[in-house]
Design a protein around this nucleic acid. Sequence first.
RNA 1: GGAGAAGUAACCAAGAGGCUGAAGGUAUCGGACUUGAAAUCCGACAGGUCGGGCAACCGGCGCGGGGGUUCAAAUCCCCCCUUCUCCGCCA
Length: 426
Amino acid sequence: MLDIKFIRDNAETVRQNIRNKYQDAKLPLVDEVIALDAENRAVKQEVEELRATRNRLSKEIGKLMGQGKRDEAEKVKAEVSADGARIDELTAREREVEAALHKKMLLIPNIIDPSVPLGKDDSENVEVERFGEPLVPDFPIPYHTEIMERFHGIDMDAAGRVSGNGFYYLMGDIARLHEAVIAYARDFMIDKGFTFCIPPFMIHGNVVEGVMSQSDMDAMMYKIEGEDLYLIGTSEHSMIGKFIDQIIPEDTLPQTLTSYSPCFRKEKGAHGIEERGVYRIHQFEKQEMIVVCRPEDSMKWYEQMWRWSVELFRSLDIPVRQLECCSGDLADLKVKSCDIEAWSPRQQKYFEVCSCSNLGDAQARRLKMRVKGADGRTYLPHTLNNTVVAPPRMLIAFLENNLQADGSVLIPEVLRPYMGGKEKLQ
RNA sequence: GGAGAAGUAACCAAGAGGCUGAAGGUAUCGGACUUGAAAUCCGACAGGUCGGGCAACCGGCGCGGGGGUUCAAAUCCCCCCUUCUCCGCCA
């Protein structure tokens, strides 16, 4: 969401940004917003003037009543009533225009960073850098569920019976490995100076609207029947939402938080739920990192944050690469975003395991979160989020990359304390 | 889930339809007194947001949130939220 004043003064920049994102259907929105804004201000000017008069006269009535001059008071009353209908009419129009304006504003995408490569969809995302050798062993790597089954670590059939497609039971050492990865990731971020947090897993609709675009919401969020509550799709939602309507003292920035939560996603849209395995499912768990900072610091944090994801995966002996999102693949609120992809020796390609985003001030504006500076002025902070680790999916990378020729799975040193000292699964 | 009570500024707290755009106090800041400090005295101290204006400034909204009644609402009515106490239920 952009500042209306920015749209007013930079209409062509906003239009070009829409073109850069291959969303030409949204181009008319710019002029519609500018027209609604003009009407909004005209209506406000008239109605506020009328209200000012009414306020002034009402005070006079009060004074006259106090002096016992009832007749004079009645005369003024009649005068005030005369404008009543017009005020009501304009007040109603003011609401309509504001609602329409807000609705359209929500659809206009955030201005992307100049460094973002232009492209129409995910096929045009750009590989920036690789970390670690993408090795292909000389023995076959089975499908990840097959590896898990060897350790009696997964029961998809039962999950299907109990919850349907898109759910899993993890069992035994595989379930333990899942928890070990989460615990390791949590401690990894605590060591980076982040504050650990367990947030609510359900949030109000206005918070959902504040943290994501309407289209993302439709494709992702589960609503609780009969309540104004949604299951979170990521703890980012409750962690950024934490600041709704808040004025944050500048000296508490940057806020660096790492949160654990299960994540619930409909996965409607382009991909849908995969037939087999735990790659794309309706429920998974995730350790997340979020940062709220001064605008001038957000790009520095962005660089830092994705590098931590790389560091974490490398510490588990998993080769990764950084893939930058092109303009067309960038969600509407984002200024810049990249994925960290892990190497799959089975498929001999990389697949997404982390997503790091700089949202600029878009979430802050929607949520009305502000920072109070030392000089007393308020401004909008920037918000960022990044996956630390999302285990069911990362377990795919983990199992494939640590599988040995004899069928055992090597446990990297950093995870052993969380696995009761085990060096391998066999 | 049921019954009560309460939500006013950083904090405590008055106010119960109209000179309240919000008393008073604590804290904070500035000043006087003092060698300095304390104490005392004087002064400042209601935010946030939107609209207009180059600006000084003017105006709208605003007393948990949202509606309503009224010329006028912190004050009356309705709905909701939160907190506290008691009961019930429960990991």
